[in-house]
Design a protein around this nucleic acid. Structure first.
Lengths: 213, 213, 213, 213
DNA sequence: AATGAATGAGCATTCATTCAT
DNA sequence: GATGAATGAATGCTCATTCAT
């Protein structure tokens, strides 16, 4: 009864695949509404309406509002963690990988899942149970970046900084991006992400400090 | 019927002063509850309960839940804007004033109004009307900092940066502090704030970039 | 917030007394509906309708459907237990008191609270929590009658019987009365109750056994 | 589409026999759940689950929840009526046959269909239609016992009693047995049933009245 | 025969807000 | 000014039932 979010290419029967598709469709719409309205302003009625479905039908796929919305977030979180892990454990110097992580992270939260990203911040409005799961994801997520940073500091590729302070600043700055960045700006996405990355990397002693024009 | 927030030492009658005190008390408690639970988890009932007051009585002081909470936020916002304005228009070099602004801002959101600060971020869960007012405050607030930054860049005291990008990073990093900073840490508040300030100032080309240990 | 059922002549303020009256009125109507429809067929809507009240208003007096309906039963149960206790601890021989208990019990469940009495039997349809409370009442209730019976058996005023078997038969017979007894029958209530009492008392060896006409 | 309950060795095709078996299996499980939970706490989902069947599949065998449960009760009712009829129309004195009826009845409701027996009492929670059918069964059922009693009173083998009162007491006492009797008690089933029978028969003037020890 | 999907109707509960006292 | 009472509107959730496959 618990829904499996991702579109893993499992070897499932025709029915199971169809169900999977339906679940994903629901998740997509739910994510949309969720990101427009926030948790408590999102009613199952609305999600159902947009799907041209009866409210009760949602319960065929999810046990509760909470489980539906948690799954939404979970999908993004896991996807994101997976990708970052790949980059973090890749080749290249610490600063290079850190830069890669930053840019990838920005792509995820601004381009791919612009709606959901900001939800990870709105701690207060979620039910406690969900908040805990969000916390977990944050922890795992942070651990990845933290790993690369520590490595870089140890190897001398990054400056000798107070890791925890700087890392928090990094997180704050990155998570804030979806709040101001709009795809159709003067820069291409890539350029914008690189601008942000180069800016925040200065806090790690990476890159040449900007000097007066 | 609309409530006047601040405790300005206006020349008011005894009754009006008493009312003012009551209003402030309500605001204080409301801020507390709001920050603990978020908007939609905060019921007027609970606020009234903590004040040992009847729910209906709140309507003697505020027109609606929305107006109550708007006033809460407004109080902090105005206070904060006033103080930052003072600092921004003070003497000293741009970097010095910028540093001052950062530290003051941190004090406000982590020490003085730790509860409310994070509410300014939780955009989604607020009614549209409130969101708009928050936007206003943000704009005014940002304008202050932006002013000093632009001045510094023009005068060459700050590096030649993409102001909007860096300023957003600054905002993100600062607003995130209340989420991780806990007063009784290894540093004193002051030390912590300075650590954060020095870190983020690097993005402006201020300070010596950290080098390997 | 928890409602006090009985109409105890407490020294309460005017407001409290008014509230008390309202609560009793609600309980009365709830008991009615409850007895007509059973637990799961009773909707708060219907209770409210009959009171010409909004469904939501019921929540001013009771925390939940369960608490409302539990209080209904509780009222009768406590009343009943009190009265039986008085009789059980009165003067007179065991058989006399036992007879008194039986008749009083019949009056309570058929005349005074005809609606609720049968609900005490319908164990299955109640939520577990309620079932437990019903069990409690049963236990206390039975203990009273049991006490008199044991006393009678010990003193030789009642026959030497298997107390538990006979007592259960007594309970079964009495609780069944509301299902068949209708006030306007050929007998007066009193006569009917005495007829039942004399019949069941035979199981205790009390009274002359009926002989062929 | 209406299901035929009993497992009469009808001359049916293979398919029909298979269907019959399926129906009986469903009835068995349904009876179980119904007796554990009561009507309104029993969902078709649960019955289907225990049968490892889809909820919708139940509708191949029964028109509705109501018809399913009616059939359940009907099975026991008919069986019971058949058996009692046999005993009632057998040989032996009225008191002997009455005693036989009582004991058989007890066996049916406590040993053979312990689950369903109590459901016959829970009048209130049933849909009206069902209640009416239950009433019918009760009437037919009671008529059998009533017949033997009247015969006994007329012939002078039973005391000159108010038949309707005593018969109701009998019914009440017997129907209550499933609520307290647990097979593994100090007595064998047979002994317990006889104890109950002898006790209630005293109300008919049958047996020696118990005297003090 | 079997079932997954879908649904309408119903229900308890919450809560901001109004109003008479 | 204070409050108890009352309420409409909204919402999450359940469940018997239908239907296409």
């Amino acid at each position: 009864m618990t829904a499996c979010p991702q579109d893993e290419p499992q070897q499932l029967g025709r029915v199971a695949r169809k169900r999977q598709r339906r679940v994903n469709e629901i998740l997509r719409v739910a994510a949309q509404v969720l990101s427009e309205r926030g948790y408590y302003n999102t009613s199952l009625e609305e999600i159902a309406d947009r799907l041209d479905l009866a409210k009760a039908s949602l319960y065929h796929y999810f046990d509760s509002k909470e489980s539906l919305l948690t799954t939404c977030l979970g999908t993004v979180a896991e996807e994101s963690i997976t990708r970052l892990t790949t980059i973090a454990s890749g080749t290249g110097s610490s600063p290079e990988r850190l830069r890669g992580l930053i840019i990838e992270q920005l792509r995820i939260i601004t381009v791919e899942y612009p709606e959901l990203a900001r939800l990870f911040l709105a701690h207060l409005e979620w039910p406690v149970t969900v908040r805990e799961r969000i916390s977990d994801w944050h922890t795992r997520h942070d651990a990845i970046i933290k790993g690369v940073i520590e490595e870089g500091v140890r190897s001398g590729e990054l400056g000798d900084i107070d890791i925890s302070v700087v890392r928090h600043n990094l997180t704050g700055a990155l998570n804030f991006v979806p709040f101001w960045f709009h795809p159709e700006g003067r820069f291409s996405d890539r350029e914008a992400f690189e601008a942000v990355a180069d800016s925040v990397l200065l806090m790690f002693g990476v890159g040449a400090p900007p000097t007066p024009a």
